[in-house]
C-alpha cells in the first residue's frame, strides 16, 4: 500500500528533475550570484557579499533611472489598450477591406525587434525621413532630435513599442469579439443604439477580461521585454537617458564585470514580474470562472 503511493511520485520524478534543471537551478544560481562578488580566478576571487549588492543598486542613480524608465514605459499600456479596442471595434464592423487593415495592423507584431529598431532608428534621425517629412510640409518646428536628445529618446522608443505591440492587442480583441453572441449587438442596434453607445455598453464590457489579460501581458513586456528596443535604437543613450532595468543588468554583467550587481538587479526584476505573472494567472482564472 505504502509503495503504491510512492509510484506516482516515481513517475513524476523525471518531470520534476527536468523542471528543476530548467527553472530551479538557474533561479538558485541567480540568487546565489546576487549574494556574491563573483570572480572565479586567483586574481579575482569570489567572495560572499551578503546584501551589499542589493544595497548598492538601491543607492545607484543609474538603477533608479532604469526603474523610472520602466515605469514610464507603463504609460504605453493604457494607450495600447485604448487604441487596440478602438481599432478592433472598427475592424469588427467589417468595413470594406477590413482583412487588409487587420493584416496591416498585425504585421509589425511579427517583425523582429532589431529590424523594427534599425528602420525606425534611421527614420528618427535628426536628418531622417520623419524630420524631412515635417520640413517638407512646412512643419520644421516639429522636427526634433528624436533619438539623440535626452528628453525625446524615451518617448520615441515608446512610440515604436506601441507601433509594434498594437497588432497583438487588436488581434486578441477581434478574436474575442467574434465569440460574442451577435444577438447582443443586434438587439442594441434594434433599440436604436448608435456606434459609440454599442461600443461603450457592449463591446468594451465584453472585452474586459481580454483587455485585462492584454494589459498585464504588456506590463510584463514593459518590464522585461524591452531590452532589444533599447539596445538597437539607443544603446541606453544619450547620456544613459533610456537605460531600462534589463539594459542595466546587461551592462553590469557583461560590460562592467559586476555579475553580483547584475544578478541582484535580476532578482528584483524577477520579483516584480512575478507579481504581474501571479496577477495574470489570477485574472485568467477569474475570467474563466466567470464564463463558466
Amino acid at each position: 500500500m505504502k509503495s503504491s503511493r510512492l509510484v506516482p511520485w516515481l513517475y513524476t520524478l523525471p518531470l520534476f528533475a527536468l523542471v528543476g534543471a530548467v527553472f530551479a537551478y538557474p533561479l538558485a544560481q541567480l540568487v546565489r550570484y546576487s549574494l556574491e562578488n563573483v570572480g572565479g580566478s586567483p586574481y579575482l576571487p569570489t567572495t560572499f557579499a551578503g546584501t551589499s549588492n542589493f544595497r548598492y543598486i538601491a543607492s545607484d542613480s543609474l538603477f533608479q533611472t532604469a526603474i523610472k524608465n520602466n515605469l514610464k514605459l507603463f504609460l504605453c499600456v493604457p494607450v495600447l489598450v485604448a487604441v487596440s479596442v478602438l481599432l478592433a471595434a472598427l475592424i469588427f464592423d467589417r468595413p470594406r477591406g477590413w482583412k487588409v487593415y487587420r493584416t496591416v495592423i498585425f504585421l509589425p507584431y511579427v517583425l523582429s525587434i532589431p529590424v523594427v529598431g534599425v528602420v525606425w532608428g534611421y527614420m528618427f534621425r535628426l536628418n531622417g525621413v520623419v524630420n524631412s517629412g515635417f520640413r517638407s510640409f512646412g512643419l520644421g518646428f516639429a522636427a526634433q532630435d528624436w533619438l539623440g536628445s535626452t528628453s525625446w529618446a524615451l518617448p520615441t522608443i515608446m512610440f515604436v513599442i506601441i507601433w509594434k505591440e498594437l497588432g497583438f492587442g487588436v488581434i486578441l480583441c477581434v478574436a474575442r469579439l467574434t465569440s460574442v453572441d451577435e444577438q447582443l449587438f443586434e438587439a442594441a442596434r434594434v433599440d436604436g443604439a448608435r456606434w459609440w453607445r454599442v461600443f461603450r455598453h457592449i463591446t468594451v464590457p465584453q472585452l474586459a477580461p481580454t483587455l485585462l489579460f492584454y494589459a498585464i501581458v504588456e506590463l510584463i513586456t514593459m518590464l522585461s521585454w524591452v531590452f532589444a528596443y533599447v539596445y538597437v535604437m539607443t544603446l541606453g543613450g544619450p547620456q544613459n537617458s533610456t537605460v531600462v532595468t534589463e539594459y542595466y543588468i546587461y551592462e553590469a554583467v557583461f560590460q562592467n564585470n559586476t555579475i553580483g550587481v547584475g544578478a541582484a538587479a535580476g532578482v528584483i526584476l524577477l520579483a516584480i514580474v512575478s507579481v504581474f505573472i501571479g496577477l495574470r494567472f489570477w485574472i485568467t482564472r477569474t475570467a474563466s470562472l466567470a464564463f463558466e
Binding site: 534621425r125 536628418n127 531622417g128 532630435d145 528624436w146 539623440g148
Partner: peptide, 8 residues
C-alpha cells in the same frame, strides 16, 4: 561638429 552627433 555636425548637429546630429547623438543620432548617428
Amino acid at each position: 561638429v555636425n548637429n546630429d552627433v547623438n543620432s548617428i
